[in-house]
Simulated assay, not measured.
Amino acid sequence: MLAPRRFLPSISSLLALEAVDRLGSATAAAEELSLTHSAVSRQLKVLEEQIGVTLLRRVGKGLALTPSGADYARSVRDCLNDLARASLKIRAGGARSSLNLAVLPAFGMHWLAPQLKAFSTQYPDVTANLTTRLSPFDFAREKFDAAIHYGGQDWQGVDYLELSRERVIPAASPELLAHGPKTAEELLSMPLLHLESRPGAWEEWFAAQGAEADRLRGMLFDQFTAMAEAAALGFGVALLPEYLAESEFLRGRLHPAFPDYLPLAGRYYLVWPNSLPPSRPLASLIAFLKDAQGKAITAPR
């Protein structure tokens, strides 16, 4: 249910308040909004009367927001930004339906994007919008239809579709691997690159190889792509997922620093809130990915 009209000021008055807060004066706000100073003052007066709270106060010949006015201006700015983003999405999509996905950047670029290319061919009336999110969030507060999640089924209030299992391999620049892949013991003496969201990843990898490793240090990154770039520049050895490693191996920027991949317990999932049935575009994507997974499993090797 929409709020009563008395709590829904005009866009013009909200734009005036936001501009005065951001620019510091009604004169500057009037110039940005292509209005007269008196027109901005009228908009603000109408807004104060509608809200019933003093939002501005006189300071010399100028205006300053009261604490209540400043708080309200921040909320107004968020609402205006949400409205602008919604307008951009519908303008970009035109008559097509939108599907808003929160993705892990490297997986989204190297694994999901090719899938979405095929999906868009089969469903040309759906536009997929991608935004980066590195950790779980509240679907009730974020305007996403679905998200990519890595790990276990530990995201509350969602349904899951498994997309891919995880395998990792150490990778480094050709210059660091002049004599080919290394043993686990040799890798211990080389600079190792680390990912913030995978603490203990190297320790787990060395343990799987039967090598003791403790308190490993090295450069820290927040995304796989940045870590792969640093590895290509020769900063050290990166422990990369298969979808990214294979891409870098094909380009020749990185070479395997160890002969084999190591399977991990983590999985990549498509997740979506289970409180409501999936929208038509999301249901189409779920069905498409399920079909693609089935074909991958039954394909001859």
Rank of each mutant, 00 (worst) to 15 (best):
L285H: 08
D71N: 14
A231D: 00
A102V: 06
E18G: 04
L56I: 08
E204Q: 14
Q50Y: 13
Y123P: 07
G252K: 12
Y150P: 13
S173F: 05
H37Y: 15
R133E: 10
D222G: 14
H37A: 09
L270G: 03
V271Q: 01
K295P: 08
D159Y: 10
P191A: 13
R167G: 09
D154I: 02
R198M: 09
S38F: 15
F139P: 02
V271I: 05
V168S: 00
L112T: 05
P105R: 07
V237T: 14
L23M: 05
L101V: 03
Y243G: 03
L282T: 06
A70L: 01
L130Y: 02
L104R: 09
P278S: 14
A140R: 13
E242Q: 07
A92G: 03
F288W: 04
R57M: 09
L250T: 12
L250D: 11
Q223H: 11
T66Q: 01
T36Q: 03
G266H: 09
P136W: 03
G234N: 01
L134H: 11
L33G: 11
H110D: 09
R74G: 07
R141C: 02
L23E: 01
D154A: 10
A146N: 02
P281H: 12
E229Q: 15
L161D: 14
R22M: 01
L65V: 03
Q223N: 12
